[in-house]
Design a binder for these strands. Structure first.
Lengths: 344, 344
DNA sequence: TATGTTTATGAAACCGGTTTCTGAAACCGG
DNA sequence: CCGGTTTCAGAAACCGGTTTCATAAACATA
């Protein structure tokens, strides 16, 4: 069954294509009521539905939001960051009746090469999910007329719309929770240096220390990766130190590191929170189901996706200029992995 | 920067649009080599990239695969079925250099209403992810010329391409693992009646019993839902029975039910596998990280997504007719939740 | 009634490609 | 040197819409 075009409707209603188009686009003033009625009736009868691609070609919005994901992960959906963000995007698009087109690339270099494809008219705007800072894709996109927003860190350019989680305040809150209980030797387990989030979380850590009047001790800053093994490794290294050099509390800069840290402490038979207190930044809520309850700052990743869609639609339809910066704060969820330090 | 069209290239190269089109589509025979060179050079210089939407309108493939998801879940990505399937689709599309457009709907009724949108030329074919059997959407789609495949159960119609996990054989394998250890009273914890998978898993259960020469005892068939609470509830109900009516082994028809069952057994202080053996069908690999190791049949959900894309591309480009049925078998992973029953 | 102004609608151009049709030039053999 | 093929490339139609422009009809005003 070939689908019916605007031409079929026009013929059947005895009017021109232009008139049908006018009626269906609600340019009411220009069409006589009775013509209008007739066209609508015929369109209804024929089950006419305008072709979005043709419409797009003629300059109308496609009602489609593009998402660029560059990853080599075997799984997008179970990635603790991408998964929830994508969820937020899908859900918001569903509510706003937008289609979601996903451009999957192996890396941002490839994304840059495929940039013309994104501007092909497929979508009305783009969400770049954590583009690497060293990829020229952002600046290449700025030269085009396609609206876009960035999820992740890109704060330097005032003309970019950026949505990110507020890593500084999240780290601050998590460390503050430890300091307020009287901990004076608080270690931080950082992630990979190549992510901007590492620096931000470290900054929040320093701020909380400073505010609590605690010294910044480089020996308590452990760098590794955002994975369980790294958390475990660094925790062991810390705990094998002589008592005076050992921290009484750990701040884990993501959920995976925290899980690794807990495992290490368990195998070292160090009790949480009696002997060591722990807080963390948690991306996904699955932290809540751990055997050892973990006090953590829960990051609103879904919300990031939702905000990205909203901001983008504002740019597309309301003509809001790019440049907005949204940092979403996390929320401290107290679950009992923090106690006062044992007097030495 | 307005993007350059085929017209710009044509003018600059001193040829007609038709010629440019021919050169870029590799219809080589019809273009003189030197013209060809010149056009290619100009296209290169201008950074020309054909507009996919215009191309689509003119009848060329869009290189885009559509995915219809109807759900009311708060999260697609963390759904134990949708998540991995979507992963497989995204990954395969990445490899095949296809875009992925996702149509999100609240339910299949809504999907039916939006069906014309799917046929809008946005995509070359459609993957319906577990459409409900009672929605007319499948038959409505058959009347269109848009190729599509179904993920999930729809075996009745020989003209449909269907990709699903082989629930019957998976259940069979999981129950067989129990029967082979000598269990004679094996309970099944089923999911929701509205899913076809329930019936299939029940059938596999019956086959395994029959093959082992065990009677089918309705009192050992527990129906509930595919959620932890249901698994816990049914397990408790079973274990509170007098010893002679109690099963010595449980077959949990999905991962969530299994988790619930394990929790219930733990709180009842019933040891696994010493007092009760358990096997399950597991959608996601996270079963592997449970405190209590669980012998389970792991279902290849990612693969389902990948197969769906392959089948669809076969239909679109190779003209393979619809009708293929692919049932992907699971794989038994032995982790130690099965032991011989204790002699009564 | 003649003139000016709306109002309603169609014709045609356009968006950016593809493809069919057509004809000119080059090439072939006799 | 001529008629018949081939090769190459442009003109034009088409895909399915939107939008500008032009015009006929209806209406208002003098």
């Amino acid at each position: 069954m070939a689908s019916i075009s605007i031409h079929d409707v026009a013929v059947r209603a005895g009017v021109s294509r232009a008139t049908v188009s006018r009626v269906l686009n609600g340019t009411e003033a220009l069409v006589a009521p009775k013509t209008r009625e007739r066209v609508l009736k015929v369109a209804q009868e024929l089950g006419y539905h305008p072709n979005a691609v043709a419409r797009g070609l003629a300059g109308k919005p496609m009602n489609t939001i593009g998402v660029v994901l560059a990853y080599i992960l075997p799984s997008v959906t179970s990635d603790p960051f991408l998964g929830p963000v994508l969820d937020g995007i899908l859900d918001k698009n569903k509510r706003r009746r937008q289609k979601t087109v996903i451009f999957t690339e192996n890396d941002w270099q490839e994304a840059l090469e495929n940039l013309p494809t994104y501007c092909d008219g497929h979508c009305d705007g783009l969400i770049l999910v954590i583009p690497r800072s060293d990829s020229p894709i952002v600046h290449a996109l700025q030269k085009r007329r396609l609206p876009f927003v960035i999820v992740g860190d890109y704060r330097e350019d005032p003309n970019l719309t950026v949505i990110d989680s507020d890593n500084v305040s999240a780290a601050y809150t998590a460390v503050q929770a430890l300091a307020q209980q009287g901990h004076r030797r608080i270690a931080i387990l950082c992630g990979n240096r190549e992510f901007a989030s590492r620096g931000q979380r470290l900054e929040g850590y320093r701020r909380a220390l400073a505010e609590a009047g605690l010294p910044y001790d480089e020996s308590l800053v452990m760098t590794g990766e955002y994975w369980e093994w790294s958390g475990a490794e660094n925790t062991e290294a810390l705990m094998r130190r002589p008592p005076s050099e050992r921290p009484t509390a750990l701040f884990c800069s993501n959920g995976r590191i925290a899980i690794g840290a807990l495992q290490a402490l368990e195998s070292l038979q160090i009790a949480v929170p009696d002997e060591v207190s722990i807080t963390a930044i948690a991306e996904t809520p699955d932290i809540a189901t751990l055997r050892q309850p973990l006090t953590a700052v829960q990051m609103p990743l879904r919300l990031i996706g939702e905000c990205a869609v909203e901001c983008l639609l504002d740019q597309i339809h309301a003509g809001v200029p790019a440049g907005e910066k949204i940092l979403l704060p996390g929320e401290l969820v107290v679950r009992g992995s923090v106690a006062r330090p044992t007097p030495a």
